[in-house]
Design a protein around this nucleic acid. Structure first.
Lengths: 199, 199
DNA sequence: TTGTTCAATCAACGGGTGTTGAACGGAGGG
DNA sequence: CCCTCCGTTCAACACCCGTTGATTGAACAA
């Protein structure tokens, strides 16, 4: 191989055309996986939505599973909930508020497909485990792990209810109202309990 | 038709054999739907697990979808959370405690399959809507609907995390510990907030 | 006994799937 | 100009699916 001067050698119409086509396929695949899940999404449907032939999808991405992994790679789950103990709840709430208005596409695709496609489960678990570990580290309580797991489950349930289940009751609710109701809940879960209740 | 003395005319070996076979198919189908979801569950696999031919499954239940509906029918979602406002939280906790130890098979089958199979979505929505409506009626607050929806999402997330996702962090946790952590959360959500916090 | 009913099996069809390999056609380099 | 590369298409393969119809054989009725 003679020294390749520039990796993207400016003005290569073919390379750029390919990049665009790949991006179009990737976007179409993302939509389909989110809307229909892994099993019901067909490579032919992706190809049609991208305006190409099904064989081309295979030629570029190798297999349906590889394409799926490419789609779900990169974005992953919400960022790190690090910070002083008192601020953890607010950070989670801010993150959740974003997920209520904007669909977290990759998370939804992984979540939905994970429930159907076993090969995906491992990747999803690793993502949530990292999230929970960081979260648990920020909670000053002996049962921090369980608290973090509950918060993770709570977030998962809420996002699923709003974006996947739909008409589950949360899709029409005001995000601010949801956040306001969840604030005391998250404060309770992220801080050790005072006296339970002197009733 | 000559008056049929008894509908189950005692000692009909064929009828009882059929009932047993149907029950076996139903149980096998339930397992498969929960473990693999609707799409990945094949009639052939159900038949094999039940020790019969695939055609027999069709002959008894008509179609795969009809079989699935039969499996998910009946048990539905947790019973009514009615009662005095103060007791609602404890009732939910008791119900949830049961769902943590024993798998709510039908709910899981519906939940998992709903995420893949659109025809199932409606049935699941109706189930959760009834649950939420009854729950909202027991919550003395102006935003009772949103509160009920959040509780529903919370339960869904927890049950999913424990039984479907597995190793999501809640599968190894002690049920009593989970319930204890959730108690203040549900009390907060089922009762109108006192002063937010005078810090 | 004879005839009927019905649980259960078997082989097959039609369709949809992921995947493959050959073929086309225009852009790039000699 | 020709030759090669490469994005792209096309037709087909092999497989598995849900579903069906004919068929078998044992339990019931007469």
């Amino acid at each position: 191989m003679p020294h390749p001067a520039e990796p993207p050698p400016r003005g290569d119409a073919r390379a750029e055309q390919r990049r665009r086509t790949e991006a179009r396929i990737l976007a179409a695949a993302s939509d389909q996986f989110v809307e229909a899940g892994y099993e019901r999404t067909t490579i032919r449907a992706i190809a049609q939505a991208a305006g190409v032939d099904a064989g081309l999808v295979m030629h570029y991405f190798g297999s349906k599973l590889a394409l799926f992994e490419q789609v779900t790679k990169g974005g992953q789950l919400p960022p790190a909930p690090t910070g002083p103990p008192g601020q953890v709840a607010e950070q989670i709430l801010a993150q959740l508020a974003g997920s209520l208005t904007t669909e977290p596409v990759r998370s939804l695709a992984m979540l939905r497909s994970m429930l159907t496609h076993p090969e995906t489960t491992q990747a999803f678990r690793e993502g949530t485990q990292r999230f929970r570990a960081q979260l648990a580290a920020a909670i000053p309580a002996p049962d921090a792990d369980t608290r973090a797991a509950l918060i993770s489950a709570l977030i998962m349930g809420v996002v699923m209810d709003r974006h996947l289940l739909k008409s589950g009751g949360l899709d029409t609710a005001d995000p601010d109202q949801i956040i306001a109701l969840l604030r005391p809940v998250l404060r309770t879960l992220t801080t050790a309990d005072p006296p339970p209740d002197p009733a």
